[in-house]
Design a protein around this nucleic acid. Structure first.
Lengths: 116, 116
DNA sequence: TTGATCTACAACCATTTGGTTGCACGTTAG
DNA sequence: CTAACGTGCAACCAAATGGTTGTAGATCAA
């Protein structure tokens, strides 16, 4: 398995999507039980509706949210699966390091133990 | 508590740093027991040394690696702590969603206030 | 029907990103 | 000492980002 390095375009998109405070907040706001329309989201931020549309588009390309039309509204809902994927990528990195540490028999003072 | 909100500039930097395949690979290559110089890293990729320097700089700004001079070389070493922080951020997001699901059927009309 | 909403999309703009080359400077090897 | 190596930095460039305004098409409320 390891890290996909080359075909990591998905990882690129996921991490890039998470690298913006507004987008991370959209993920929070559209969590389970509080799906919202694009315009409803836009009212929360000091930016234009179009800007929010673009943010949602980025999240969508990363697979972090889905859009579903409801009348004239477009409801944004998160896809928890993709975020899980993101965490798996981080776990893989840490896993690699731990494996390498084990090989070298090195001991670090910290317990980055798998609390997941 | 919860998401670091405004201090999220750190989150911005961490996720942005992770949003590039070359940088993620640098993290893998400089893992525990295999610290490498910038030029040694540069030989691994089809890009210039300067480009690698910049990538390392981005990782450094995110707190993901540290540089230590050794003679004429600059040794890049990972800081596992920062990556742990990144995973915590993801955990917080998932945690928020779970909390929200727990409040199912509750009052949905108001702002979840607090974040951003 | 009419008007207000919500979304979509094009065009535009400033800034950032990721890359390059060239040059200077300290360090190490012969 | 001299030459090669590793790094730092400035200047430059193309493309991507994140934002804007404007226009247009659906859909809903009255």
């Amino acid at each position: 398995m390891v890290v996909d390095q080359l075909t990591s375009t998905e990882a690129d998109r996921i991490f890039h999507a998470l690298a913006d405070a507004t987008r991370r907040d959209i993920l929070v706001q559209t969590g389970p039980g509080s799906e919202q329309s694009v315009s409803a989201l836009a009212r929360r931020y000091p930016i234009s509706v179009t800007a929010v549309q673009k943010h949602v588009g980025v999240l969508q390309d990363a697979g972090l949210v889905t859009k579903a039309r409801r009348g004239r509204e477009q409801i944004v809902r998160i896809d928890t699966q993709a975020l899980h994927t993101a965490r798996l990528l981080l776990d893989q990195l840490e896993g690699l390091w731990r494996a390498r540490m084990a090989q070298f028999g090195q001991v670090l003072g910290e317990q980055t133990k798998g609390d997941l």
